[in-house]
């Protein structure tokens, strides 16, 4: 930076603003058909209270939706989209 110029201005404080959204491979949750920007039908507000989860098959759902789905499966726990065995992506 050039400090020799007499009319030198620089920024000493910055309050920036950013918004966040989920990185998902689809617009809507494949289980409840609600947008990922929204929340699952059981929740009222999107955001941290209704997070998304990804499986190793790279499919993504509201956590509440996929847990409900997995609980309803008696034998094999499969991804509802691709029928592969469901494993949470680490």
């Amino acid at each position: 930076m050039l400090l020799d110029q007499f009319n030198f201005h620089y920024i000493s404080g910055w309050t920036a603003v950013a918004s966040w959204r989920w990185i998902a491979n689809d617009e809507n949750c494949g289980i409840c058909r609600m947008p990922f920007d929204g929340c699952c039908p059981d929740c009222k507000l999107p955001g941290d209270d209704c997070p998304l989860v990804w499986g190793q098959c790279s499919h993504c759902f509201h956590i509440h939706c996929i847990v409900k789905w997995l609980n309803s499966q008696q034998v094999h726990q499969l991804c509802p989209m691709c029928r592969q065995e469901w494993k949470f992506k680490e």
Partner: peptide, 30 residues
């Protein structure tokens, strides 16, 4: 900051909103 934030919260992406930011500017006048 992006790296810092995404390290804490995976699966998200950040969208900067420059129209909402504000700064403190040190200015030198004669």
């Amino acid at each position: 900051f992006k790296k810092f934030y995404l390290g804490k919260h995976s699966g998200r992406k950040l969208q900067w909103q420059p129209s909402l930011g504000h700064c403190v500017l040190k200015a030198q006048f004669p």
